[in-house]
Nucleic acid binder design. Sequence first.
RNA 1: GCUGACGUAGCUCAGUCGGUAGAGCACAUCCUUGGUAAGGAUGAGGUCGUCGGUUCAAGUCCGAUCGUCAGCUCCA
Length: 684
Amino acid sequence: MQKVRGSNPLEPTEVPGYGIYRFKNLLNSEITPIFYKRKELMENIKITLPDGSAREVEKGTTPFQVAEAISGRLAKEALVAKVDGKLVDLQTPINSDAELQILTFKDPEGQHTYWHSTSHLMAHAVQEMYPEAKFGVGPAIESGFYYDIDIDTKLSEEDLPKIEKKMHQIAEQNNMFKRSELSKKEAEELWTKKGDQYKLELIEGLDDEKDVISIYGEGEFTDLCTGPHVPSAGKLKYFKLLSVSGSYWRGDEKNKSMQRIYGISFPKQKMLEEHLHLLEEAKKRDHRKLGKQLDLFSVQEEAGPGLIYWHPKGARVRHLIEAFWKDAHYDNGYEMLYSPHVGKKWLWETSGHLENYKENMYAPMTIDDQDYFIKPMNCPFHILMYKGQLRSYRDLPLRWAELGTVYRYEKSGVLHGLLRVRGFTQDDAHIFCTQEQIEDEIIEVIRFSMFMWKSFGFEDIKFYLSTKPEKAVGEDDLWDKAIHSLRNALEKEGYDYELDEGGGAFYGPKIDLKVRDALNREWQMSTIQFDFNLPERFDMTYIGEDGNQHRPYMVHRALLGSIERFFGVLIEHHGGAFPTWLAPVQVAVIPVSQVFFDYAKSVVDELKKSGIRVEFDQRNEKIGYKIRDWETQKVPYMLIAGEKEMEAGTVSVRQHKVGDLGAQPLQEFKDKVLNEINNKVINN
RNA sequence: GCUGACGUAGCUCAGUCGGUAGAGCACAUCCUUGGUAAGGAUGAGGUCGUCGGUUCAAGUCCGAUCGUCAGCUCCA
């Protein structure tokens, strides 16, 4: 049994009867012993480090000791280790040859361990402050951690600093995170005593054969946990509790609601400050805030939530997006459609929407004793057009696109600015094709989508491939071929993707493209979905080469997702400073005083003639004031026109965020801007 | 929809113990005619989200409702 010596758990462990000596000549031998003991007791094992070098160490040496032997700094920063790819505590003795990795906060696993340990510390603090507290789960998440807590007291933001204070007090005691392993029965007894039904439920769910039930104790606080953890609570120094909100036990809204506290922690104060600063900066980029500041769009409370009003400047950007989108579609072999906004009950019965999607549809309106529904999707209309005539294999593929406005009832709590709304315009298209054509079609859609995203300045996009769920329509063979084509297309195009096994819609597999917003939330944008349901329900056919009827493949795809959501992430991506080609106002002309109005007007007219969106600022204000104003409106260029410029026939150019560029001939400036516009230059 | 917080002028916000509404910006008028991020004066602008209750008295306390926000759940 090992003994921990002294109060600092990070000191090397001493094994009775074994002298531990640091080997002096560490660097010279290929296999470097780090510790060795008296010869007669020596039993060594070999550990391999990530750089490929191997070292011989005494059996039972801990990762921490290895770290210490390699470098004092590494030992200081070490949080957790990986032995043969498995995460373990730094104090876990290594007893056989192994590959060893020492992880610090720089490693994702190190970060996670750090955050998870902080969530234990937080739970400990909450337990001390509210002894009746029961705990759900408390994992590390992508950025920080949370813990679900069941207490009668309603926590508010004001309670968070108090909990933080308690956490600091506990951290100062620097208790070790101690691991113990229990039998299922022992664990059940322990939490029955604590009266924590959540943990009991978790224990209940464990497999008694396979799973080791491990618990971690830190000071007075013990928690069911697979670990690993940082060695001691004293390592956790700089943390901030960010918010408290509701959650459900096991994520099921039928279960009791709990309170969830979110937080984040870092080993260095500077890192914490930087992170908090980033959060502040991100808030400034929030499209809801910028939408108001730049007068782009609004939601009218009185007229209904989740419905977007596009103001002139936002509408101008939308027009440019849509015009570009339409041209690109014609260039890529698509035809454009327009379809109605409502359809009779028959249509939605046939499509199956009334059966499967009714709770998301706006209620029907009765016209001439017939129920009409507002469309939640465009597909049935496109299908009717397909069925309007007999189709031959020679007609395929058909690529039909529409900027189709749909309305869906979304639960009130999920509405979010432009990103989750009730009425939106999909940049929708349906591709009808033969089996032989599907892979090429998918490849084309992926290329087209990425072309669109790149045109608007996006590079960081993640792909998700979703396969067949349990409840699904369509034969396995169809699914397999479709999934195969999706996978192949992604691989041929060289895109990494995450597999969401069973995450497809019931009617077909899909590829989703997701983009992050300023607040680091991921939103599904583009989607490429097979549909085995609608062609069947509407009995779509084409006549094949063999003269027989065949069922076409149907693919739904939206490149940008919806215009609303796309506009939302576009605003955030550029922080409201749109590239020149998309800016609602491209140039503001500012005369130094009224004396130069005529000259400034000639500049304005000249630019307008070239189709540049220019504003003439004739307000009775000083130029400092006007510059500040246009700068906050994030207009790409300002032109100052005064005496010098009038005499020389030039303009003084000021670029957004960059500043004064000096005087240049008007023609030169005009060419530069036109070039930026025509080539859709992304300047940030 | 659920849990919690919030809702005051066009915007951002203050408003103490319940005593009848305040700032800055924006806007209007006037003065000022200016050189790269806010010139000055004056003025107008609010049934304090809505409905109801308690009270002599409600922006303030209570309830309901609508909406927003943070999450949860959902997302064909």
